[in-house]
């Protein structure tokens, strides 16, 4: 298996996508969406941009399965960090235990 060389066209496309994403996220921030949609939109754009960087600039798309597993492990442990912490903080006061 030899190294995959990503073409200049792909790099330029990703670069433009990232710039458009930045412009979109700034524009969306000034619009008052209902409930928590401002945060959801901002994070969706950020995750999309990050995904493009990881897949193309960081060549993950062309990397071995082993690298994919390592990246997935990062997301997995982050999920644990957030899930366990917020399962505590967000559920405080749900039950009245009489003290």
């Amino acid at each position: 298996m030899s190294e995959h060389i990503v073409s200049v066209r792909v790099y330029v496309t990703i670069f433009l996508v990232l710039l458009v994403g930045t412009a979109l996220t700034v524009l969306a921030a000034f619009v008052d969406f209902r409930w928590k949609f401002n945060t959801i939109i901002a994070l969706t754009i950020a995750v999309t941009k990050a995904t493009f960087v990881v897949l193309y600039f960081m060549h993950l798309r062309y990397s071995s399965r082993l690298v994919w597993v390592i990246v997935a492990s990062a997301l997995f442990w982050m999920a644990i960090l957030f899930a366990l912490t917020f399962s505590d903080y967000l559920t405080r006061g749900w039950l009245s235990v009489g003290y």
Partner: peptide, 26 residues
């Protein structure tokens, strides 16, 4: 080192909306 540089870029991609943009609509 390219991987490292892109990673630092990704951190900023999250920091920018979370720190600068969260209250603009208010």
């Amino acid at each position: 080192i390219g991987l490292y540089w892109h990673f630092v870029d990704i951190i900023w991609i999250f920091l920018f909306p979370l720190l600068y943009l969260l209250g603009r609509h208010m």
